[in-house]
Design a binder for these strands. Sequence first.
DNA 1: GTCTATAACGCGATAGAC
DNA 2: GTCTATCGCGTTATAGAC
Lengths: 210, 210
Amino acid sequence: MSQTDTVSRILDAAEVLFAERGFTETSLRTITSTAGVNLAAVNYHFGSKKELIQAVFERFLTPFTRALEEELNRRIAEGVPLGVQELIECLYRVGLGSLGLEGKDPQRFMRLLGLAYTQFQGHLRRFIVSRYGDTYRRFAGLLAEALPGLDPETFYWRLYFMLGATIFTLSSHDAIEAILREDFGTRSSLPETLERLVPAASAMLKVDSH
Amino acid sequence: MSQTDTVSRILDAAEVLFAERGFTETSLRTITSTAGVNLAAVNYHFGSKKELIQAVFERFLTPFTRALEEELNRRIAEGVPLGVQELIECLYRVGLGSLGLEGKDPQRFMRLLGLAYTQFQGHLRRFIVSRYGDTYRRFAGLLAEALPGLDPETFYWRLYFMLGATIFTLSSHDAIEAILREDFGTRSSLPETLERLVPAASAMLKVDSH
DNA sequence: GTCTATAACGCGATAGAC
DNA sequence: GTCTATCGCGTTATAGAC
């Protein structure tokens, strides 16, 4: 088995297990045995568990932010100013596309993002901000431009409200979907939920608060 | 030291430490040494770490749900039908009041609620649903009545969007506030954030999606 | 580059003295 | 009801053989 194989087998297993159980709740023993590699391989290839966690995030966030940047460039080159709803749609569409490649479940990455915010891994938050903060600030800037007249503080709070609604809902999508399926007998896929989320999030950003 | 003292000293320490670090990341050794009690006291008084976690939630959720029920009764007795914005205000106001008693930080409880959703503690989710599900369903029912014409599925998804925006934002309130303070030099307290959240959440629930 | 074996430690839980 | 002492297990990380 080549080195690349071992590295990606570890990343594949860690990605799934972290999303299912959390970081502390997932041991290197579980990861390596799921991946079919030796226990020592993680420390050999990544150095430590912390660095493995960062590598898992890097593997999906780097293509995602690159795809988002490219999509924003493409839309801006068209010369049409982007509205609130279009920007949010853009974010979600790129997310679904970039994170759903190779038959992977985009919801898994939403769980990981939710964990990054709630699991008190200071090193992970610092890693994400330093590596992907520029793209985040660019997107926030475009969204702010689409909301002239809104005072900056209220804008930023609402941006966090939107991120909260998105990450929280999508990271529990299966659980919520199961409850609603039982009550209404109807299914609802991730794209359908995003279609519901777009107008709701836009309304939250745009509402006149006076 | 009497039994009640030991029990509440453990609960006080566990409440703070769990909110700061998470459940798995907080050991019984840290809890008991912070509380100034013996390591064995947790297992003696609560039986296990799981049951301690449940007891921490019970101590703040029981007064909160009772206060919410009473406030809903009071408002309904007035005979005026409750609108969306009023119901959300009601929820937040009871939360601030009931969770902020005895000089405690309401945000701490929001962090705990956030953890309950994201930390994969199946036992805790089951405990909360079985103990407080009735009040939750009553509140959701009143909110649905205030939104006639909205199809039930869309309503429930938006209810989760609202919960997500609330729990996610409030559980990270200090961190977000620190970022905005640095950028704008202005402070913003928890009640002020809730004032921003009320119109935003209401708009999200009420918006016409067609 | 990958393995086995193990070091070094922290964990939750409990038995039994007081 | 509270204490000490400890069991048994799982953890990350590493040394050293191959």
